[in-house]
């Protein structure tokens, strides 16, 4: 079966005095139907800009300069503004990190949910929309939804607000939900509730999810496929099992070594030296080479292509797998 979403050679740039700066630089990804693609990376790796590009919500002066975003074969980048508006919230919905700033503080939450519904179904009666909104609140397991319908965002806890955001996002039964760090601002116990809810809703509706996060634990818990991004490009892409079982890219190794684990005692964490380069000062060749302990001359010469190292497992590193690189040096 063809994937629900195919991103091909996507390039998102920001205009600056010194020429175009690419925040997303040649990214190709697929989101299978009914599955979850996790996108992992640190701040500045382009993961949020990628999702905004899919939604065509890149803030000016940024723009998508090249590539295709195919939703069931239809290129979203070629749609008219009104066609795109029907896609947003209709077939593709998005939730963000900060549920407080995503909700309007001066309107009751019920009104905000029905507003989205009305935009996609202008002929529905107010009473009908109210019933549907209450059902949506019930679906995200908000207790006493009829009472909550008339409450304001400040009356809800952080976890409840994120539930409201999810209820809004799912109101029009999207095929794809883009969740950009949906649990980062929440406590662990609340995070566990929200992840649980997302998983149940996916099983119920068969929607696909793009889950953007910096937390390797959340990815391991939720994602079927994982893409690791670094400085605007995909460094490694594999199924979750393969990525954690046989990590290939040195950046992925560095990330895995940086995370303290609950099931392992280590005296020192294996930190990655240095910091992510900003998009206007990228190094020559492989973008990870200044921080990579395996870097050689050739790594500074050209950007490594994303190559299939094991079946279905891609990495953009000429030194992968690293054990062969080390043996060669001996």
């Amino acid at each position: 079966m063809s994937p629900l979403l195919e991103i091909q050679g996507l390039r998102t740039v920001f205009r600056s005095a010194g020429g175009d700066i690419a925040a997303v630089d040649g990214v190709s990804l697929e989101v299978p139907r009914g599955r979850t693609l996790g996108i992992v990376g640190e701040s500045g790796c382009g993961k949020s800009m990628l999702s905004l590009s899919v939604m065509r919500l890149v803030p000016p002066p940024g723009r998508v300069a090249a590539g295709r975003v195919l939703l069931e074969g239809r290129d979203l980048l070629t749609l008219s503004t009104s066609e795109m508006r029907a896609v947003r919230g209709g077939q593709v919905a998005m939730i963000f990190q900060e549920p407080m700033t995503s909700l309007n503080p001066v309107h009751p939450i019920g009104l905000q949910i029905t507003e989205a519904m009305r935009a996609h179904d202008p002929r529905a009666s107010t009473a009908e929309l109210r019933d549907r909104a209450i059902a949506a609140l019930e679906r995200v397991r908000i207790p006493a939804p009829t009472r909550r319908y008339d409450e304001f965002p400040h009356q809800l806890s952080g976890g409840m607000r994120q539930r409201v955001m999810i209820a809004m996002a799912l109101a029009c039964k999207p095929k794809l939900l883009i969740a950009d760090e949906p649990t980062t601002a929440l406590d662990v116990t609340v995070q566990a509730q929200i992840l649980d809810l997302l998983r149940d809703l996916q099983a119920e509706t068969g929607m696909s999810i793009i889950l953007i996060t910096h937390d390797l634990g959340v990815v391991a818990e939720m994602a079927d496929e994982v893409a690791v991004m670094y400085a605007g490009r995909v460094a490694e892409r594999a199924s979750a099992r393969d990525l954690f079982g046989s990590p290939q890219h040195p950046y992925t190794l560095g990330l895995l070594g940086s995370v303290p684990r609950l099931d392992e005692d280590r005296d020192r964490l294996l930190a990655i030296e240095g910091a992510v380069p900003p998009p206007f000062a990228l190094p020559q060749g492989c973008r990870f080479n200044p921080r990579c302990p395996f870097a050689i001359e050739a790594c500074t010469a050209a950007q490594p292509p994303l190559e299939e190292i094991e079946p279905g497992h891609f990495a953009a590193c000429i030194r992968a797998p690293v054990e062969s690189a080390v043996e060669l040096a001996r």
Binding site: A192, G217, V218, E221, A223, A240, L256, L262
Partner: peptide
């Protein structure tokens, strides 16, 4: 115990072991 059970492990083989704690503080 609830706090420890709520943490997702960076290991897909342990998926599904997270047990959410009900309710709010």
């Amino acid at each position: 115990r609830a706090l420890l059970r709520a943490i997702p492990h960076p290991d897909p083989r342990r998926r599904g072991q997270v047990t959410p704690l009900g309710g709010d503080v």
